[in-house]
Nucleic acid binder design. Structure first.
Lengths: 303, 303
DNA sequence: AGGGGGCGTTCGGGACAACCGTATGCTGAG
DNA sequence: CTCAGCATACGGTTGTCCCGAACGCCCCCT
């Protein structure tokens, strides 16, 4: 019987808990499923606790398993910090953000981190909403900045992977804009995975015609050139509104989606279905239990 | 080449750093010296850093080794805390103290800890000064309460083991007392390892006759019965002084030890050699780097 | 000067853990 | 009822952990 919990076991455990299946964790760890299964069994054996309920669909955390997951993250981070302190190697963090947020908010974040933590290398990845949540959950990025709504993460769309925590650090108003004298009917939208596209789907009825573009910045450019109207975040269009290059327009009441039935999720916000521009939360997301190791990064992102 | 630092390696490393020799660590860990040596080599290999200078007298920490030692303690404590949180096992700490301090101060410490941390089992060990310092250094006790003097640990006697930290939480005045009408010449002293005996040796010239007893409480009892005079801590005799069962006496000037030469250690305090009763620091000692895990215990001890 | 004791390390070997590939039993979907 | 996807049991290989014994080093004591 195993006496000591080893970091290697915790690493495997975390991978299984995040992936939800032994097979998935084995892929991430580049191991055979049999090896992963054995490690988990040894860890449970050593602790004298059952960490997972085995189902034919995967591994579901038990209560002690959840307790371990929240702490294992921090312990592995702590071990990493110790190793860095001894070897003198630099620390490397990866932050992810939506395309527009990466362009507008991340430069400031990186600059603040460079001032406060010169011994820190920051990598940036720009992904869409679903990719960001998945990347935070599986460790591909350490923290992410995205747009969401409501009191719990993932209200906007995509069921949230478990074990994530978040903090809202600002609010982004969405404005329906068009070029003065341009086409004010065609609705220019970004791909379905995009946060703002999700807001569009919640705001407009399904029968309003849409033209799908590859990104928000593309949509903004098309709107500038008078090719349609689009729902865009305030920070992306306020300059154009001030200069008069763009103007806000109102949707026709019949275009707006009816308030959804009682059975579904909670309302996006009070303006849902009324046609008024909704506001989204600027939301910082990270893996629960890693606050200690990410403290400086999270502070820099929330400034 | 080892990729990952494992907790087992750190445990062995800490034992070697504390013992100062591979052989000593092997005894503590109940391993063969060869195994310990191999573990250390693997750890150094995995980190890519030399942790010890090998000498024919033992193992001396290098700079990275010292950096690791201070952090390894905390990491192992963290791992213990995680294991306890998952298994639900109770936490157990051992505190040590000098005999008189265990009698007078520890009951309050234990009571405060029982209130604030009901999930904590406290063991108490009463040891003399040298044993306490050694026990803190090798992990036999988690924290200790003793008497000392000066700005650094061990000024009173015994070379301090490395890697200890301390905080003075009070002051203890030593009073030379006797029973009214009793023998006021015979100097009743405790064994040489005792903190107060060390103070006696610093205060009185070597040719003043001493009678050695087994403990401070024994000495107090003998003084009460008029069998001599003794240098005792205030908290042990103040009640008897108030009741008149004991009185303070002054040593004759010729009994006092001359101020020591310039080559030696620092002064005990300003009163050294003057015959005035010196004051000792009530000192809390623990292993550096374990503050996080011992925080509640240290707070309770310093109240 | 010479040997003894204490030190860390090396060496060969045994037990066990961490991997692998494969095979098996399970359950829900089609 | 088959099939896909899942976790796991089974043999086998590699590497880690541990041992006892032998070695080389240095200091100290005679």
């Amino acid at each position: 019987m195993l006496r000591r919990v080893e970091l290697r076991h915790l690493q495997v455990f975390v991978a299984v808990a995040r992936a939800g299946t032994v097979t998935g964790a084995a892929n991430v760890l580049e191991l055979a499923p049999a090896s992963v299964s054995e490690q988990v069994r040894r860890l449970e054996n050593g602790l004298g606790v059952t960490l997972f309920d085995r189902t034919p669909r995967g591994m579901r955390l038990t209560a002690p398993g959840k307790a371990l997951l929240e702490r294992a993250q921090g312990l592995l981070d702590h071990a990493d910090e110790v190793r860095r302190a001894v070897t003198g190697r630099r620390r490397r963090v990866t932050v992810g953000a939506l395309e527009m947020l990466a362009a507008t908010r991340l430069p400031g974040v990186v600059r603040r981190l460079a001032e406060r933590r010169p011994d820190l290398d920051v990598d940036v990845r720009t992904l869409n909403r679903g990719q960001l949540l998945a990347a935070v959950a599986d460790g591909g990025v350490d923290a992410a900045l995205l747009l969401d709504a409501g009191m719990r993460i993932g209200t906007l769309g995509f069921r949230p992977p478990d074990g994530l925590d978040f903090l809202d650090v600002g609010e982004v108003a969405l404005r329906l804009v068009a070029a003065p004298g341009g086409d004010a009917r065609t609705l220019l939208v970004s791909p379905p995975e995009c946060s703002i596209r999700m807001a569009v789907e919640r705001m407009f009825a399904a029968d309003v015609p849409r033209r799908e573009l590859t990104s928000i910045s593309t949509a903004r450019e098309w709107v500038r050139q008078g090719l349609g109207r689009s729902l865009l975040p305030d920070f992306a269009v306020d300059a154009d509104l001030d200069s008069g290059a763009l103007v806000t327009v109102a949707p026709a009441p019949e275009e707006c989606r009816a308030a959804q039935g009682a059975g579904g999720g909670k309302s996006l916000d009070a303006s849902e279905g009324t046609g008024r521009s909704p506001a989204l939360a600027l939301r910082m997301v990270w893996t629960r239990g890693r606050e200690a190791a990410l403290r400086d990064v999270l502070y820099a992102m929330s400034d």
